[in-house]
Design a protein around this nucleic acid. Structure first.
Length: 402
RNA sequence: GGGGAGAUACCAAAGCGGCCAACUGGGCCAGACUGUAAAUCUGGUGGCUUAUGCCUUCGACGGUUCGAAUCCGUCUCUCCCCA
């Protein structure tokens, strides 16, 4: 297939991996596949329960991309059936079951976003409803009989939830089995996941063995924590999404803790170890800015990445105003005695409510044309020119009256 | 099937008849400081056209009371123990 040496081939898999069960199996299977002139089938499941991918997913996708380029077949499973259960991994709560319609909508954006990293023309995509919809209850029972309750309770997430007296739905036990069954159906050679997925991956291995297939190799990659140190998740609001603007991406990276930078460099950029070491040995702010630029550039292109960095420097380091302040037209008629500032801030969307705006003003966070407003009850007369409004550090608007 | 415990704001968790828009911690927002949207410190964290005021909130619905998150009834949901 290509001139890769066996050692290089294996190294592609090993780089960055936390668990590799079993590495010896992998070496053997890899050699066999190469001898037959093909690559391995590498499975990765995506749970379309939240609408957008974030850089936490990118860790896995970058790995898949490298493997794809090395000639392996990537099999993407969109878990539209499993999404209706909700993966118990890393959760301490029962997750709401999603409706088909929700899943359907998420699925479209998901695959499109995955295409930002993977070559989708060479990627096999399946929804697991393809096989789960065809199952009868009898089939479900048969599948459920392949694992024991004790085995399921080994999962630390279930254990923690039991201790915390949180409810656990019976259907949640089905999740690992469903994910494992996916492996059987697509005859996967390797399944990739985050470290929190190891249990699920191993269930797939067991099931394949019971179905007389060669058990898949289970490979996990480190989880990247979100901006607040918790697991990165859109629902925690601590994620950098694929759809974030370059400026958002850069800014979020700049708010990372210094000590996680190394992981981010290794897992999300193509920089080699030597360069990473040099960066981390230098000035932290510089290193972090480089990281932000790399990430913004990967998703939006070099120019956008650089522009994001420049914009951030101007706004936060040099404390200049951003260049792209939105201009807001105030459409309503302007009362003769002016508009209360708190109300104005709400109406143009700078604050969530007028009470919120009042608090901001009391805290000294509101500026009009650069001057801090001290009076909570200030009324604003109809401006003759553009009026610059600042609510906190990040929200700006130029107001124009009708 | 039997017995017990519980449901409070984004999360956790106090409050158990008026002093409660509700202690405290986390998160979040803002201010100061800074290499940063880090750390630290300080303040804030239902809504209202302007407030030592008004309106809505403590699982749901009813009731008692001058007055209820707090007492009573029914319902919904959760956890634990026994079978």
């Amino acid at each position: 297939m290509n001139a890769l040496s066996a050692a290089d081939d294996l190294a592609h898999f090993r780089r960055g991996a936390v668990d590799l069960v079993e590495e010896r199996d992998l070496a053997a299977r890899l050699a066999k596949a190469r001898a037959a002139g093909r690559g391995l089938r590498v499975k990765f499941g995506m749970d379309p329960s939240s609408p957008d991918l974030h850089v936490g997913h990118a860790v896995q996708l970058m790995k898949l991309r490298a493997l794809q380029q090395a000639g392996h077949t990537i099999v993407l499973i969109v878990g539209d059936a499993t999404a209706m259960v909700g993966d118990p991994s890393g959760r301490n709560k029962l997750r709401p079951q999603l409706s088909r319609a929700d899943v359907e909508a998420n699925l479209v954006t998901y695959t499109a976003q995955a295409g930002k990293v993977l070559d989708m023309t060479r990627t096999e995509v399946h929804r697991n409803s393809e096989w789960f919809d065809a199952m009868r209850f009898e089939d479900v029972l048969r599948l459920a009989s392949k694992a024991t309750v004790a085995r399921m309770l080994e999962r630390d997430t279930f254990e923690k939830r039991m201790e915390a007296k949180e409810p656990i739905g019976v259907h949640e036990f089905l999740y690992p089995l469903m994910q494992g069954w996916d492996s059987v159906m697509i005859r996967s050679d390797v399944e990739l996941g985050g470290t929190d997925q190891l249990f699920n991956l191993l269930v797939g291995r067991d099931l394949q063995e019971k179905e007389n297939q060669a058990p898949q190799i289970c490979m996990t990659l480190p989880l990247i924590n979100g901006l607040d140190g918790r697991k990165m998740s859109k629902s925690y609001g601590n994620a950098i999404a694929f759809t974030d603007s370059p400026a958002e991406m850069f800014g979020k990276v700049m708010s990372l803790r210094d000590d996680v930078m190394g992981d981010w460099f290794r897992l999300l950029t193509g920089l080699d170890e030597g360069e990473i070491a040099t960066l981390l040995g230098g000035h932290f702010r510089e290193a972090k800015a480089r990281l932000g630029e790399e990430i913004a550039s990967f998703f939006h292109g070099r120019d956008a990445g650089r522009a994001a960095r420049d914009g951030f420097d101007r706004q936060f380091r040099d404390k200049e105003l951003p260049t792209d302040i939105p201009v807001v037209e105030y459409a309503k008629p302007w009362p003769a005695d002016g508009v209360p500032l708190a109300v104005l801030l709400r109406e143009i969307g700078l604050c969530a409510s007028s009470s919120d705006a009042r608090r901001l003003i009391e805290g000294g966070g509101v500026k009009l044309d650069g001057a801090v407003v001290a009076d909570v009850n200030a009324r604003i007369a109809r401006p003759t020119a553009e009026l610059l409004l600042q609510a906190g550090k990040r929200k700006f608007a130029k107001l124009r009256a009708q």
